[in-house]
Nucleic acid binder design. Structure first.
Lengths: 258, 258
DNA sequence: CGTAATTTTGACGCGCGTCAAAGCTTGTGG
DNA sequence: CCACAAGCTTTGACGCGCGTCAAAATTACG
């Protein structure tokens, strides 16, 4: 799927008129690989007018809250975390600009997890029922919604596989490479990463103790595969890192299309 | 969502004319909580005509095969398994009658995993593009597809949480309780389970060594919480098992609606 | 009924979680 | 702009849960 073929004009993004050139557009994920009629464009535009800003540590939504909308991240990073037994939280995802969260609430019509800003973030509110209606009249939008949910399923399966079979070091590298690719898609550097979440959040996401994550970082640093200081991480050898986790292509085969 | 309100007549299921009374109907998952016009019914019916039988150990589809359809399980159990690094497989799900698999292929238009019959199974082929078309004219079908994918997202997150935070024993019990509920929904006993997969498959699914699973079963048996012999497992005390994993309601809050 | 696959059992070791304490950041108020 | 406090991160010591290996017991299947 060639990103350069995106042709929808999108008024929510102030820095561009066509999504094909603007990788940080909050609606990159909803922008369609096919052209839309002017009418469709204006309707889609109408859906995405409302914005919300969520400051660091604040909730976008909480578990058990009624479901009204999904959210496209415009800037900043959010995390979704589930309550595990007992009291402990488990982070199931970090959500970068251009990504959409909230799909897991459709079934029960309530959010099954908390969504919290890891750093101050801005999101675009996409009222679900309006999106649904619109999807009926715009086939490529319907397809795109299914594609996005499908991708999330795929990614969750990848995460499950990593959790079940990979040792600590590989899990960390898998996560770093995932961030690298997603940042690259946003036009940022794939090697100089700014990870605003705490070590504790990252280790929780990976199913590790913070101490273990720290030790893994130390070891990777000793092998000069990366350099980490605070929230800045520099990956020195992407190829070597990819090789470490036994791949380079297959792990994230799906991640470029969207 | 009251199952008794299901009113769609479904010709693919020979044992009933209305899904409200037939819990084993292969299309239970697609049957809608709202009534449909006679025209809608016949169109939906047309989509689900084709069947496939898959014998034990045979593939329904393989990783990287092009995507054409999702599949509703009519009878038997299938597993979906991903290739992990290196050579090792990781089972990401078991699929019981009434459940639908294949949604994770929409994004890349190719199946990201293998689907194999754990015991001889029969599935209903649901050509995706016809389903998509139909969803445009039947809003409640569109909604239902989104709900099903949403539920799978939710369940994957639950699995992730269990994998990341629960010790071996709890993971096993969580899985057993999940099977119990799903069998119950099919009108089978929630306490006398027939688990056709091998211990190796079950342990793989749980991210454990077969030896560990065996020992966990022995311990649970010693506490007379259950009795396992071969593929037959009898749960003696559902309440105690639920308490063991710190819950009974919240873990599967979403599982009854569908 | 015999051979292969699966399951169980025991012994053992290691990866990673836990605990505790010492650096290091970050943010706030004087 | 510095000082102090609260939180975050790192380090080391230690123990345990679970994976690994090996072999016996059981089951499945031709």
């Amino acid at each position: 799927m060639d990103v350069s073929r995106l042709r929808i004009a999108c008024s929510t993004c102030s820095t561009c008129s066509t999504c094909s050139t603007c990788s940080t557009c909050s609606l990159a994920q909803l922008c369609l690989p096919f052209s839309l009629s002017a009418r469709d464009v204006s309707e889609l535009d109408g859906v995405v007018q409302r914005r919300r800003t969520i400051h660091r540590r604040q909730y976008l939504y909480r578990a058990d809250e009624p479901f009204h909308a999904v959210y496209a991240v415009r800037s900043g990073i959010l995390k979704t975390s589930h309550l595990a037994a007992y009291g402990e939280e488990q982070i199931t995802g970090f959500h970068l600009p251009g990504e959409i969260l909230g799909w897991d609430a459709i079934m029960s019509w309530a959010h099954p997890c908390d969504a919290v800003a890891v750093e101050t973030a801005s999101v675009c509110v996409l009222p679900f029922e309006r999106l649904e209606e619109l999807a009926r009249t715009i086939p490529s939008l319907q397809r795109q919604i299914l594609r996005l949910m499908s991708r999330e399923l795929f990614q969750d399966h990848e995460a499950l596989v990593a959790m079940a079979r990979r040792p600590a070091e590989e899990r960390v590298v898998v996560a770093l490479l995932s961030f690298s690719e997603r940042f690259a898609r946003l036009g940022r550097s794939p090697t100089a990463l700014r990870l605003p979440m705490t070590r504790g959040e990252l280790s929780n996401y990976l199913g590790l103790a913070p101490e273990t994550l720290s030790r893994v970082f130390r070891r990777l640093q000793a092998s000069s595969l990366l350099r980490a200081s605070g929230h800045e991480v520099v990956l020195h050898d992407l190829a070597a890192l990819r090789q470490l986790v036994g791949d380079g292509a297959s792990v994230n085969r799906q991640s470029q299309s969207g």
